[in-house]
Design a protein around this nucleic acid. Structure first.
Lengths: 199, 199
DNA sequence: GTCTATATCCCGATAGAC
DNA sequence: GTCTATCGGGATATAGAC
C-alpha cells in the first residue's frame, strides 16, 4: 500500500510526506505559501531535501496535482458504476474537501504551462468518465440524446455543484438553497421516469 | 473623468496607475507576482510610493478588486435593462477578459479575510442585479416562478458561461460546443414564447 | 537519503531627504 | 508627492559532507 508505483518508495516516506505537506499548505494558505522551506518543515525534513526529490518547486506542484487526480478519478470511477450516476455526480462534485486546492491549481494553471497541461489532461479524463456514466443513465430512461446530450447534462450537474462549493468557500450563499432544491427536484423527476418507458 | 471620487486624484495619476498595473500583473502572472517592486516598476514609480498610497499590499489588492467591481457592475446594470436580459447575461458572463483576474481573486479570497469579505459583497450585488433582471424577463414570458425561480435561472446561466471561460483558459474545450448550442437553443425557445401568453 | 552551509536574489515595510 | 537608503527576513537552488 505504501509502495504505490514502481520502486519510488525506497525512502522513509519523505517523498510522499512532501507531496502531502505541499497539498496541505496550498489548501490552507495558498500556492504562494508553499515554499520549499515551508513544505519541508511541514513534512519534518530539511529544505534541501525537497530538491533531492523534485528538480524544482513546479515539479513538486505537478506531482501534487497528479496524486490528487489519481485519487479523485478512482473515487469517481467507483462511484459512477453503482447507484444513480446523476445523483452521485451531484454529490461528488459538491464535496468541499477539494475545493480550495482546485482553485489554487486553477490559478496556477493560468500562469504556469506545466500545470496547465496537467490540469487540462485531468479535466478531460474526468469529463469522459462522467459523460459516459451519464450517457448510460439517460439512455436507460429513454431521454432523447439530441435534446439533452450526455456531455451537456454531466457538465451542468458537475459545474453547478462546484460553483456552489466555490461560492460557499468565500461566504456567498445567496440562492444556494433554491438552487439545491431545484437540482434535486430535477434529478428526482428524472429518476422517477420508468426505466425502459422510452423503448 | 480622471476625478473619479472625492479628492482622490490630487496626484499625477500615480495611484490609479498603481491599481491598473497591479491588475495587469495579477492577470498576466498571478497574485504572487504582484509585489510592491513589480507593480511600482510597471506603473513607472518607485517601490516606496506604493506605501504612500496604500498601507499594505493587501489594501492595494482590495482597491484593485473594488475598481474592477465598479466597472463590471456598471456595465451589467446598463446591459440588463435593455435587450433580452437572459441573452445579455449569457454574453456578459462569457467574456474572457476578466476570467484570469477573477480566478486570482478567488484564490486570494480563500486565504485573506479582507479579500474574502470584499469579494462576497461584490458577488452578492451581482447576483441581486442579475436575478432582478431575470425575474422581469421570466414574468413577461409567463414562466412559473415556482418551477423556475429567477435566482436559479440567473445562477445557471451565469455560472455556465463562467465555467466555459475558466475551462477555456486552461485549454479544456471538451463539450463546449454542445453546451453553447444547448444554452442558446434554450434561450431561443424561451424568447419565442409570446410575451403575455401566460396572463 | 539526509544533512549543513552558502550563493544570489527579492520581499514588505519604514525613515527621512527633497 | 516622490525619492534614496536600509532593516530584517525569506526565496530558489546548489555544493559538498556524512
Amino acid at each position: 500500500m505504501a509502495q504505490s508505483r514502481k520502486a519510488k518508495a525506497a525512502d522513509g516516506g519523505a517523498r510522499l510526506r512532501l507531496i502531502e505537506a505541499t497539498a496541505k499548505v496550498m489548501r490552507d494558505e495558498g500556492y504562494a505559501a508553499a515554499t520549499s522551506r515551508r513544505v519541508a518543515t511541514e513534512a519534518g525534513v530539511k529544505q534541501a531535501l525537497v530538491y533531492y526529490y523534485f528538480p524544482s518547486m513546479d515539479d513538486l506542484f505537478v506531482e501534487v496535482l497528479r496524486a490528487g487526480a489519481e485519487v479523485s478519478l478512482a473515487r469517481m470511477r467507483d462511484a459512477l458504476t453503482d447507484d444513480d450516476p446523476l445523483l452521485t455526480l451531484w454529490s461528488l462534485n459538491g464535496e468541499s474537501r477539494m475545493t480550495a486546492l482546485n482553485t489554487e491549481f486553477m490559478a496556477l494553471a493560468n500562469h504556469r504551462k506545466v500545470i496547465r497541461v496537467e490540469l487540462k489532461a485531468y479535466a478531460e479524463r474526468v469529463r469522459d468518465i462522467e459523460t459516459a456514466a451519464v450517457a448510460v443513465s439517460l439512455r436507460a430512461r429513454g431521454v432523447d440524446p439530441q435534446a439533452f446530450p450526455p456531455v451537456v447534462v454531466s457538465m451542468l450537474i458537475a459545474q453547478t455543484a462546484r460553483s456552489l462549493c466555490n461560492e460557499s468557500a468565500v461566504g456567498v450563499t445567496l440562492g444556494h438553497d433554491e438552487m439545491r432544491a431545484f437540482v434535486e427536484r430535477q434529478l428526482r423527476t428524472l429518476a422517477a421516469v420508468t426505466p425502459g418507458s422510452g423503448r
